[in-house]
């Protein structure tokens, strides 16, 4: 039978969380179809059609889906659910919002944030802030799954799927989009960046967070934060890395002035290399850091910036 992947996008560009979800989906069921729901989003559907291994792209283009509101997505997906034996979405705030509604209406338990497909009905997922990995077997029938995209490689491009316009569902009239306040950044996306530099409460202020900017710019890195830094208003909520924020797994994670609480580690301990700068030699972050520097960050950061500049690091990219 067939798997359906719900695309993540902003009506203009396809988020690479989609291609990663396709990789997971193909292990559950194939062929794979993609549903693109949005408004004036034909370009997104065309991009989805180029993902290798995708047989068909369903395009629902309507004002109803401009913001992918959960209630509207529910009725749209339910209208097509019969055809599929697996429905997958990336475990983004969008996917987490609508997919449980679909699962509930289909009377199917959802398997959240899988990190591995053991077999088409058996999955691995982190629980207890990543302190345990559960292997769980879904019951027979439809599989409803969200995917932690940092755990899967993006499916290659080179596909040539057909795009089929589908009719839209009726407006459930339960919710209405009011407005959006999005963080603007020239930097790479936190969840797909190769290098992430995160700051914690140790940075002390929003102003001081700017100390990280120069290094981040040189390295082409994304900036992240601990919950304490976000709660203190140093950075907006979407910078939070952790159990209840974003999961990241870059080649390099640089933790600065972060103690290393389990809730923070849950979101970054799958990074390839972890480096930490903290003035407290007992900080738990050092137990998982490949390289730890015990230092005052207000000294170490400018030094690090100079050292990187001196060696011409980052300019070769």
């Amino acid at each position: 039978m067939t798997a359906l992947v719900i695309a993540e996008h902003d009506n203009k560009t396809l988020n690479d969380a989609t291609a990663k979800t396709v990789t997971a989906a193909a292990l559950v069921s194939s062929p794979v179809h993609i549903l693109v729901a949005g408004q004036d989003c034909a370009a997104v559907a065309d991009a989805a059609a180029k993902i290798a291994g995708v047989e068909k792209v369903l395009l629902a283009d309507d004002a109803l889906y401009a913001r992918m509101l959960a209630e509207n997505m529910e009725t749209l997906i339910l209208g097509h659910a019969d055809t599929y034996d697996a429905i997958l979405a990336p475990a983004t705030t969008t996917g987490k919002n609508y997919l449980p509604r679909v699962a509930a209406k289909l009377d199917v338990p959802q398997i959240s944030e899988i990190i591995a497909v053991v077999s088409p009905d058996t999955f691995e997922r982190p629980i207890y802030a990543g302190n345990a990995i559960e292997t769980v077997q879904a019951p027979p029938g439809k599989k409803i799954i969200t995917v932690r995209t940092t755990a899967f490689k993006a499916a290659a491009t080179g596909g040539n799927a057909r795009v089929e316009m589908i009719s839209t569902a009726t407006d459930p009239g339960l919710s209405r989009f009011v407005d959006e306040n999005l963080s603007k950044s020239e930097r790479p996306d936190l969840t797909s960046a190769k290098i992430v530099i995160s700051g914690g409460r140790g940075l002390g202020s929003a102003e001081n967070f700017k100390l990280l900017d120069q290094i981040a710019d040189r390295l082409g890195a994304a900036v992240g934060a601990s919950r304490a830094a976000v709660d203190a208003g140093y950075l907006p909520n979407d910078f939070q890395v952790g159990q209840t924020g974003k999961a990241v797994a870059p080649d390099l994670y640089l933790a600065i002035g972060i103690s290393g609480a389990i809730q923070h580690l849950a979101g970054m301990k799958d990074s390839r290399v972890i480096a930490a700068i903290n003035k407290d030699s007992e900080a738990p972050i050092f137990q998982i850091a490949d390289y730890g520097l015990v230092a005052d960050l207000f000294q170490a950061i400018p030094e690090l910036n100079d050292e990187i500049a001196k060696r011409g690091i980052g300019q070769k990219a």
Partner: peptide, 10 residues
């Protein structure tokens, strides 16, 4: 609180 920032719905 969404991945890109804040979104308000009614």
């Amino acid at each position: 609180e969404i991945d890109g920032g804040l979104q308000t719905v009614s």
